[in-house]
């Protein structure tokens, strides 16, 4: 049966999707907390940047999505 591998793969993909969580807008209290901010500690960020630059000879690119209450 030629189509069996495709459907096995599709079934495996569907099962893996069950691991995703959708945080509802009214459940973002913890995401909105100050401690969830990536830039909450300027000194820590500067140190991490310095280490990153020294090791990788590159800087920046630390902006990431996520966190915050996602309001409005």
């Amino acid at each position: 049966m030629k189509t069996q591998p495709f459907f096995l793969l599709a079934a495996a993909g569907l099962l893996s999707l069950s691991g995703c969580a959708n945080v509802k807008p009214w459940q973002r209290e913890h995401l909105a907390d100050y401690t969830m901010r990536a830039d909450r500690d300027p000194l820590g960020t500067a140190q991490a940047e310095h280490i990153w630059f020294s090791r990788e000879e590159a800087s920046g690119g630390r902006g990431v999505g996520g966190g915050g209450c996602g309001c409005n």
């Binding site: 509802k24 807008p25 009214w26 209450c69 996602g70 309001c71 409005n72």
Partner: peptide, 28 residues
């Protein structure tokens, strides 16, 4: 709130005298 399932915070609904939702505001 789960029944209303607002898309964002805040969300408000403006209802008429019969309790029917006439307008919806997502965010401010």
């Amino acid at each position: 709130v789960a029944a209303a399932a607002p898309e964002t915070m805040p969300t408000s609904f403006v209802l008429d005298g019969d309790g029917r939702v006439c307008f919806q505001h997502n965010g401010f």
